[in-house]
Design a protein around this nucleic acid. Structure first.
Lengths: 230, 230
DNA sequence: CCCAATCCTTGACTTAAGTCAATGTCGACC
DNA sequence: GGTCGACATTGACTTAAGTCAAGGATTGGG
């Protein structure tokens, strides 16, 4: 994966000339982390950024009481920690390996020279940052303006759109993160997630079995997601 | 302000060669908006982005009940709506003129060609986006993990750092936004802001008189801001 | 299969903060 | 100076959701 061909799979490096891919593969430093290991902490000096080769990373903020708010997950091909390249010197969040993990690390100084000479690389970086900004705007909207059932409903709908399979009774998919992580992503606690899913189940909107979710009443779930119904 | 010299005042255009500033001044379209006027809506097709020449813009999300969550304010020299340049085709939030306003509008097609040819411009864009991402990470942290008094206290401390004047009794500054806007920025309602400030006043932490705030007990305020004290 | 650790669920209770209503204050305009 | 609209304050009440505790379910390793 530390080859020009391998790097081309990453959106950040798409469309780059062979020479620059070669240069990138020489400055890339491979690293491995075990599941649960901290990659960097909020406020740590940022010497560079990472690209996920294999696995998943959880980026999060930590509250005084130990609560976590997940900002987002990043997976194969995604960069993270890139904010430190050009703005400030510290990481603005914690990053932890959510699975066993392989990443490439790019030192700021090495990378910046390349960005200066390759317009496509800088455009790719801008596109990725734009995507992150959009995602944040949505997260802020949900945390501030929607109640928990609406957030859960929206998450279920988004999951069904991404991974759902038509089924006898409705649309079925497997939750891709644990209930605890779901709570941390939606800005709540796992007790509330259990209660909310339980209520949706008892009112016939969904059915669940372990990680499996079946959406039984899509219309009502959409109403809950949009705040038209509790 | 629609001149190369004028444009140079904007962080996005800092350090650019004269030729490119000239080019930018030819593609820039001046626009004016009256206070309160909507510039674009969440979901509108994004044809380009704006730079504030004179005045202030409020970027916000809107809830089902009419509540607003302010994402941030932008003022002189700041770009906004730049996310649509490279990622998706719609604006991800509302933008409204918070004062009488003059802006420059840059069409996406015109601007993109310039970004491709000027590394400094793309780096400036990346730096600005990085700054916005940091700001969002902080906003998410506060909305999810801090209670309202802590958010208010932090806002007061930040304001004192930016605009505070030493005074007999403590540090004094004028609130730069209305109490309603403060509530919308901090993810709450104005009643709660009144109550919170009133409590801080009655416990001797601060004194207020209209828009004027005096911090009387900086240490306690810092404890409230960090969640060590209610 | 057993056990330990971790995750999940459920219930009782509490609380931060929102809803609604009424009243007061401020600033702009005539 | 008076009026009006917008903003701010205060109080009573309600509620969404968090805290705490206990027990159940699941998973992975030996």
């Amino acid at each position: 994966m530390n080859t020009p061909q391998g790097l081309r799979m990453c959106p950040l490096f798409a469309g780059l000339p062979e020479d620059n891919l070669k240069e990138l593969s020489t400055i890339a430093i491979g690293k491995k982390f075990a599941r649960g290991e901290l990659i960097f902490s909020d406020g740590d000096a940022g010497e560079g950024f990472y690209v996920v080769i294999h696995g998943r990373v959880k980026l999060f903020k930590l509250g005084m009481d130990g609560r976590e708010q997940i900002l987002h997950f990043v997976a194969n091909g995604d960069p993270f920690g890139e904010v430190t390249l050009f703005s400030g010197v510290s990481y603005p969040a914690f990053a932890r390996a959510a699975t066993d993990l392989e990443v490439l690390f790019f030192k700021r100084n090495d990378f910046e020279a390349l960005v200066r000479q390759d317009p496509q690389l800088s455009l790719n970086m801008i596109a990725i940052m734009s995507h992150h900004l959009r995602r944040f705007a949505t997260l802020v909207e949900e945390l501030s303006l929607k109640d928990v059932p609406a957030r859960v409903a929206k998450y279920l709908l988004d999951s069904a759109t991404r991974n759902g399979r038509e089924h006898d009774a409705g649309i079925e998919f497997d939750l891709d993160i644990s209930k605890t992580e779901l709570a941390q992503r939606l800005g709540t606690i796992s007790e509330t997630i259990s209660r909310t899913l339980g209520k949706m189940k008892s009112t016939g909107i969904i059915d669940t079995n372990g990680k499996k979710v079946t959406i039984l009443d899509m219309d009502t779930l959409e109403e809950v997601a949009s705040g038209l119904r509790k």
